[in-house]
Structure formats: C-alpha cells, structure tokens
Design a protein around this nucleic acid. Sequence first.
DNA 1: GGTCATGTCGAAAAAGTTTCGGAGAGCTGA
DNA 2: TCAGCTCTCCGAAACTTTTTCGACATGACC
Lengths: 411, 411
Amino acid sequence: MPDSPRRAGVSAGPRRATLATVAASAGVSVATVSKVLNGRSDVAPATRSLVQSLLRQHEYVAPAPRRAEKGGVASIEVQFDTDLNAYSTEIIQGAVAAGAEAGVGVVVSIRKGSDRTAGWARDLADAGRRALIAVTSELTGRQLAALARARLPLVVIDPLNLPQTRVTSIGSTNFAGGLAATHHLLSLGHRRIAYVGGPATAACNQARLHGYRAAMEAEGAAVPPGYVQAGHFRYHDGVVGGAAVLDLPVAPTAIFAGSDETALGIMEAARARGLRIPEDLSIVGFDDTQIAQMASPPLTTVRQPLREMGGVALRTALRLVAGERVDSHHMELATELVVRGSTARVSGSRAGVRPSSAAESVAPVAQSALAAPAAVSRPAPASTPRPARVSRKPSSRAAATDGKGTPDRTA
Amino acid sequence: MPDSPRRAGVSAGPRRATLATVAASAGVSVATVSKVLNGRSDVAPATRSLVQSLLRQHEYVAPAPRRAEKGGVASIEVQFDTDLNAYSTEIIQGAVAAGAEAGVGVVVSIRKGSDRTAGWARDLADAGRRALIAVTSELTGRQLAALARARLPLVVIDPLNLPQTRVTSIGSTNFAGGLAATHHLLSLGHRRIAYVGGPATAACNQARLHGYRAAMEAEGAAVPPGYVQAGHFRYHDGVVGGAAVLDLPVAPTAIFAGSDETALGIMEAARARGLRIPEDLSIVGFDDTQIAQMASPPLTTVRQPLREMGGVALRTALRLVAGERVDSHHMELATELVVRGSTARVSGSRAGVRPSSAAESVAPVAQSALAAPAAVSRPAPASTPRPARVSRKPSSRAAATDGKGTPDRTA
DNA sequence: GGTCATGTCGAAAAAGTTTCGGAGAGCTGA
DNA sequence: TCAGCTCTCCGAAACTTTTTCGACATGACC
C-alpha cells in the first residue's frame, strides 16, 4: 500500500503516536484518551485538557483513514479570507473544473486569519481534506507548522506575504501586467497616470506597482506624490483613491487600477465629478473578471488567467498529496492586456485613435522593457508554463470583445 | 451466533450486523470482508461479489462513524448548471457561511444537466455528500428518482421547472419584486416601461413578468408587443434585448431587467446609443448582486436575499438529512427594492415635458403605433451603429437623438 | 521437475470505541 | 458520625475493524 503509515519527511524515525503512547504519557488509560478525542462527556475537565495538550504534543493524527473517507470523500479545500467577489468566483470556477476532472470535491470556505486557531489544521484533516488551497491569505509560521503536522499540503494563490518559507504558490506575471497596462496608456499619449492599488505589503501589488513605475520611468513620465494610492483592491478603495487623485491640483488623465473592482470604483468617482470615460479619463483595470466586460464602458484591463490559476493550484495540490515533488515552489501564469472601451487617446480627440495601432505599439515596448531588467521578475525563480508574456495583439480580441457595444471609437 | 439480519424498527431486537456476521455467513474470515469493504486488491472476484451480496443482504452499515466522518466528512454539494457568476457567488457565500456554522463542508460543483447520468446520484453519496442543493437547475424525473434511491435529500434554489413533484425549493417573492420595481418606475412618471428577462419557461421569470404586468395594468399603462423580451438573465441578453426595445419605434423610457447582469447589458446598449442613465433611460435590475453597487451609475434593483437563500437551503438540507420533516415544500424569502442611481423621474422633470401629461399621451400613441406596424421591430436587429432612430417621442427626445452621444443635449 | 512470480486468503497483531462496573466525592437524614 | 444515596470520573475488558505477514495454490518459464 502506498500510504503506509509514517511516510513523512524522513521515513523511519519513531513510530507514529498512538492512543497508547499518549495515554501512557498522560498516565491515563487508552479508553480515556479515546473519549477525549471523541468529545465524550465523562471526562473531567482537568483530565481532558491534560490529554488534549499531550495529544498536540505528540502530534497525534487519526491513524486509519476509514472507509467513509477514502473512496470518494477525498476533497480539497479552497479557503478565502474575505467575502467572495468576482475574483474569487473565477478562482473557484477553475478549481471546481479541475476538481471534477480529477474526481475530487472542492470545498469552499471563508476563514479570516484569526479563525485559524490551534486545532484548525487538524480539523481540516479530520474532515477529510487532503490539501489546502489558500487564496490571497496571509499564513503565519505557526499555521504553516500546523498544516505540516497534519500532513496537509498547501498551495497558495496570490500570496500576500512573500514566500518566506517553503510554500508552493501560484501567481501571475504582475510586473509584466503593470508594465503592459501603463505602456498602453503611455502609448495613447497619457503622461499623467496614477495608480490606485492594493495593500502596500502585498507582493502582487508591489509587482504591479513596480511595473507601473518601470514603464513610467522608461518613458520619462513623472510620478508626482499622491499619484500612488494604496487600498485593498475593493470597490470602495477605488471610490476613495480615485477621488483622492482626481482632486489633486494636477489631476491625472489616466488611472491604472490594481483590480477591476477598484477600477469600477474609480469610474464612479469620475462620474460623480462629471468626467466622461474614456473621453476625459482613461482607466485600466486588473484581473479581467466578469465585471470588466459588464462595465459601461467595458473596461480595458490586464487579464489574469484566474481560472487557470485555480486549476493549476488544484492539480498542484493533488500532486503534492500524491507525494510527488513539484518542480518549482512558485509558478506564474502569463497576464495579457485586454483593450476595451475605457481607454482612449488623451484629451479625447475623437478621430485618430486606432486601437489596433495603439495595441501593436504596446508589445515591442513591453518586451524590450522587460528584457532589460531581468531582476524585476524576482518572484519567479521557477519553470513556469509560459514565462511572462506581456501583451498579445489585442486587435482582433478587442474588437470581438465589445464588438456590439462601442463602434464609435474605431471610426 | 445470532446472525439474524433484520434490525427492524424496534431498537432492542437482534444486534446490528458486523463484519463477523457477514464473514460467518459467507464462510470467509473477517479480514476478507474488511478487504472487500475497502476495495483492497487481494480478493478474488468471485469472493468479492459473494461478500458484497452478503453485505447488502445483511444491511451492513459502517458501524462506528469514526471521528473522521462525524465531524467533517459530512458534506453537502451545491450544484450549478452554468458557469459561476455574481449570482452564484452570493449563493455560495451564504451556503458556505451556514455550512461553517453547522460544521459541514460545502462542495461546489458545476454540472450541466446532461452530465447527470445514471450513476450520478450514487457517486455523490459514495463521495460522502449528505444532500444536494441544486441551483437554478432543471431536474428530470429520472434524476429525482436516482437521488431518492441514493437517499440524498434535495433542495432546489430558484427552480427552473415548476415543482412537479415533491421537491423542496427555496425562492424569493419574485412577483412582489416585479411589482415593486415596476411601481417604482411608474411612480417616477414612466409609462413606457419594457421588461427584459429570462427564459419564458422559468418560474421565477414568469413571476417577475407577471408582477410587472400586474403593476402596469393597475396603472393603466400599456405593454405593447416587443416590450417584453426573453433571454437567459445574462449580460449578453441585456445587450440584445435592450437594443431590441430601444430600437422600437416607440422606445421605452424605462426598462425593468430580470437580473442585474441583464441590466448592465442594457446599460451598455443604452450607452452605445448615446442615452444617458438615468436622465434618458431608467433601469431597474434584479438580484442586487455585487455588480449592482459597482455599476456606474449604481443600479437601482430588487434585492433578492441570495445569501440568506443559500443559508436557508443549506440548513433545510441538513434538516432533511436528519430526517426531520420540513414545514413547507417551498419557501420564499422577501425581496426588497433598493433605489440607487439608475432611475430618475421621466425626462428629467425639466420644463417642456410635464411627465404626467406626457405619460397620459403616451399610452394611446403607443397603442396605435403598435397596431399598425408589425414590421417595425425588424429593421434594427442588434448592431445598428446609429440609425436616425425612427421615432422617438419627438417632444423632448428628438434633440437627444442626434446629439451624437454627448451631453450637449441637456443645454 | 525446479523455481519463481502472482493471486488469494486468514491468523494474529494493532488501533480505536464502547460498555459497564467500581472507586471516590459529596450530600442528606437520623 | 455514619449509613445510604447519587453522581462524576475512570479503566478493564469486550468488541469492531484494519493491516501485516505468512501460507498455500496455481501457472509460467527455464
């Protein structure tokens, strides 16, 4: 049987702890330990907590994954730490599809970081989870240790804190995305471009921000103070951050948002000020969630392959469960600029904006800019499915995407 | 050896069948029976099937629901039959929250109706699911029977086909919602109100539509042919349906959409025609998903308590699992109109058009207009760049029509 | 005919759960 | 103070199930 007991890191070692081990060290009978484990009532509180602490200390794990759990009940948990939104939806969709293919159930949960207390990891294992996929979550060292003890492989999507330890993570080429978005705006003639993004500490946000800065710098465009706003990628952050930059003495003509939601918030801030999009203000989002296509005007955005990321995360988790080594601790999937209707040539000159030509000018610029700083892709020390491809030629796609809606800009 | 099967109604009776019971009657060892149960490979096919039949015959059930299974492995599946969207997200969120409270995992899956084949229900049960929550899915009688055979309770959210059999379902007060939305528009002075909704066969759509019709009728407002469009509640349906009604000879001044997504599609159709919202066109959505707040302008919509519905569905499912009777086969949660920025008094309540008189004059015009040209709705299928729109009530709108989509019309 | 691999099976060991009785502790009333 | 009662807490033993490992049979191959 492949799953013989203890095939932990370094095989051999002392045998796994059993009830007897714990009972002996607690000075009680095996029966009592069993009762504690099962929450029976006939155990004195003092005894109970003693046994519980010993159980933890001995890292006791349920030994014989019983029938109920083994056949199909294998499941993988996808855990978010905030309420679900359009971003989550795409991740879930991707994970669920991949799970269906592999025959494992995908359990969705929402768990604030503070809810992940002591028994957390063990509970997951006891509940039949085989692995955990944490989305944009910050995991403490203690939590990582708890997962390891419970033998639960972990995959993180868009890790908030940098992979300080050996956690497997999935992301996208945020730097290239930030670069592409900013280049797109620059190529439309914008010079006063602001960035309204996420938490300053979040790795993905930093990468996007640096992509933006790199593009601005390469073009010699200034980034005045106040042109970079932090937030949490939410709608409200766009309303607030958008208001902040739009009310500056020298307001931007274009804004790059760290997420689609934030971009929509900025749209609202612009609307409240009587600014038309894209005539008076161009906006680029990030993610390409469903809301991007549904915005009015449809949002130009940097597509993050969220479904694929969910799928890759799930398959990676399964590989870890099977005991395989993954080739790389971090994988990045390529982002891609999707041009829709929320960006236009600066100052709203109606004629003369050829989206296709604008788009074509993006790719080479982006690539050259990328080629120079090899250091920039810092977070990706790994074999990725496709290394940082920046922007595909959006001509056909852009037309296809909003073909019905906004014919006026092509004229 | 009291190997009598039947563990009939009365508790006392003969003891429950154990592996030993079955082993004795099969003439094999306990170990062999255990192996069969666990799908081990070292059992001859003949022996295996013999044991299996004996297991069934003795009604063997896993005896000591081990720790693993009791706490967590219980899980409930929430099944969608289309890709996830903002609506799904809210349902999932509600179900996940309720599941966390009850300590059961919520497995999300996407399954087209045709994928639910023979073994489907059995597979679910074997995978540890305790119940199924089907969202906006159409279940055949065969599928219901399969679920019943597998002893899987079912709860349907927003059933598409009417509850022909005894299925438990959760919905919301769609009729009241349709009524409220339409009343809101009527109270703003609108009289030419169109409805762009979902599938004509869907129960929830019918209820919304009838609410709309009831309100219109009560006010004596006409519903000309072409003013009611069907779709699938998706964005694209709004673009198409919105275009269809906006290009009618007598276009509506307000549109009630069957979903938020559809409402956003209508917004896009309006934008493409240079119509401002809410000045030129009022729009009411349905659902109050996250995208409603993020639209620009924020969408007035009928709030459906989707999270609560997800939560109620999950708790109901758990009650069914526990063998309790539910009081009612169908539950409806209350809808509620949420007024945001996408609706306004008809024609902006500016001088020149007195809403009331204009409205009064509309009804007969519309009626006569529809009496004559059955063909008029044909010229503009969807992609009209901008025909000099045929006849938009000339009084205040004519100027707007050729305003080239810019706000100079207000002057 | 040896030998070896493979497939089947069960005895026995291991692990965990549950039952049931008993040791105390605490309370009460005489 | 003490018998009697109840209630809490615990463990020995019985029970259920899983897993290991050796035994045996069978057939293939040399």
